[in-house]
Design a binder for these strands. Structure first.
Lengths: 119, 119
DNA sequence: TTTATATATTGCAATAATACGATAGATATC
DNA sequence: GATATCTATCGTATTATTGCAATATATAAA
């Protein structure tokens, strides 16, 4: 084998997996963290910020871009990268939803246990 | 090269990357989604649920377990897997934090633009 | 037009991930 | 104990990812 059997899963599952995969490397998490600290883009600074060679950073940026987590504007010779709010929101909403479902489950289990105790 | 240069990044960045990576495959997202729908564990059902062979599912479960996203209890011959709340909370908090920082940034930019317009 | 600067692409090597058949281990049932 | 059931591990083939040197591309400055 080798290739993923992605065709069998729902669109939502594939979207979350794609976004999560893009953040599945500390260098790319680090890029996102860095983009949050700067007021204005500056792509070249990311290369200075990371302990990686320029082509490697460029590749990581490409993956983040392909996943939809960042976008870039050309400004002269430089390129201004910024985080895509919508992608972050998708992830935020997904995990918030899971957390709330887990919380709900916990409540049901506790209620059931109380019910058993009171019999 | 090949191996990741993970040693240069912060613990938090590595933690998020590890959790995100574990969800970087639709089969594993699908497993999490499935665990949310059932009241009680049942590992064998996951194999029936997914379009993958039993060893492949077992491997995906192992990765989710190694990343700390799920845990398992042995119940006779079966194994009862469940989602770890703390891991989900880490992800939820991380993306909530990013979303709020982005929102804050947007507000600052708008305020600046208004300031410029009013001069 | 030449030169400098910034980013992307290519090509390659090393490692990791994905998938599954075959098989092992562990517990229940007969 | 023999058998059935459930899950994990091993071995292996295929593909993907990571990383960088070298090079290409594209714009700005001289």
């Amino acid at each position: 084998m080798g290739a993923s059997k992605t065709e069998h899963f729902s669109e939502k599952q594939k979207t979350i997996a794609t976004l999560a995969k893009a953040l599945g490397h500390p260098a790319r998490v680090s890029i996102i963290d860095y983009l949050l600290t700067v007021d204005y883009c500056i792509c070249g600074d990311i290369v200075n910020e990371l302990p990686l060679a320029q082509p490697t950073v460029s590749q990581h940026l490409k993956e983040l871009k392909n996943a939809g987590l960042i976008s870039g504007n050309i400004e002269g010779t430089a390129i201004c990268y910024y985080i895509d709010d919508k992608a972050i929101d998708k992830l935020k909403n997904y995990f918030t939803e899971i957390a709330s479902k887990l919380e709900q489950k916990k409540t049901i289990i506790e209620a059931t246990n109380n019910n058993i105790r009171n019999k």
